[in-house]
């Protein structure tokens, strides 16, 4: 077993229950690698998730403190935890695209607005794959899924020049990056920056789901074909061409530029209390 797995995960949960060819393990490993490279230990982190593939394989294997909330609500739960936990504890949330950009979007925007010190890794398998493969809010236009058998034609959060990441930037997030699973160390570096930011960080990481996405859209569960399909549509920021769906890299880095949610509240409550003492 790999060193990171031994150090940070529960041995009996490895290998995970992911489908063959699933890219989530690559994303998960990038997160653990980032934690390792930052010198963080199991007890430095509270790991949270909600539901779906992203949570099962990541939160479920974590050796330390953790919680799995209901669908979409984990950002609110985490803000409560943020207020109650010591500031040096890191909160890392591994969630899915439906959770973050669908049902939980309002809570996510308010977590960004308040700049709560959370690192949110949105593992995007391009739709609702754990329920069998329906389209989501970042599914590329034209993709065939269970609920879009003739190709997904609705405007979504990554079409018509709309990008969920710019929404989050304007909402107040202080670190935002986008990657695909194949980005390797580049993704690890972004996650490290996200964790280091004392504020709201979100790393959007697209990963391949051969079982449900690949089988509908490409008509095959061939892992290599799906990896190639994603890779051919990804390019580092500044190197995009007309085929690029996912421009990868750091979108916004205003790390430590705004007051952090819990710090701001504690500071103000303290200020009010000092006023009382005068």
């Amino acid at each position: 077993m790999d060193y990171l797995a031994k150090k940070y995960t529960r041995p009996r949960k490895i290998p995970s229950t992911a489908c063959s060819g699933c890219g989530l393990g690559i994303n998960h490993k990038a997160v653990l690698q980032a934690i390792y490279e930052l010198g963080l230990e199991v007890e430095d982190i509270v790991w949270g998730t909600s539901i779906g593939c992203a949570g099962r394989q990541t939160f479920g294997t974590w050796k330390g403190d953790g919680f799995a909330g209901t669908h979409g609500r984990v950002y609110a739960i985490a803000r409560g935890l943020r207020l109650a936990l010591p500031s040096e504890k890191k909160i890392i949330l591994t969630v899915g695209d439906g959770d973050a950009f669908g049902i939980g979007l309002l809570h996510l925007i308010h977590a960004a607005r308040s700049n709560a010190d959370l690192t949110v890794i949105v593992n995007d398998n391009l739709g609702y794959m754990s329920t069998g493969g329906q389209y989501g809010w970042t599914t590329p236009l034209g993709s065939k899924t269970d609920s879009s058998p003739y190709g997904m034609y609705e405007q979504n959060l990554m079409s018509d020049d709309i990008d969920v990441l710019s929404m989050l930037k304007h909402a107040g997030a202080t670190f935002i990056a986008r990657h695909v699973s194949m980005d390797g160390q580049r993704a690890v570096e972004s996650i490290k920056k996200g964790i280091r930011n004392r504020g709201f960080s979100l790393i959007h990481m697209v990963y391949p789901c051969p079982t449900n996405f690949g089988s509908r859209e490409l008509g095959t569960r061939n892992t290599i074909k799906l990896y190639e399909w994603i890779e051919s549509r990804a390019a580092p920021l500044g190197e995009e061409d007309e085929n690029t769906v996912w421009a990868t890299g750091v979108y916004h880095d205003a790390s430590n530029s705004r007051p952090e949610f819990s710090e701001n509240i504690h500071k103000n409550v303290e200020r009010i209390r000092r006023g009382a003492a005068l």
């Binding site: 609110a76 739960i77 409560g80 935890l81 207020l83």
Partner: peptide, 11 residues
């Protein structure tokens, strides 16, 4: 949910 988060953390 925020209240539950705070409560889980002991508050």
């Amino acid at each position: 949910n925020m209240a539950l988060g705070a409560s889980f953390a002991g508050v």
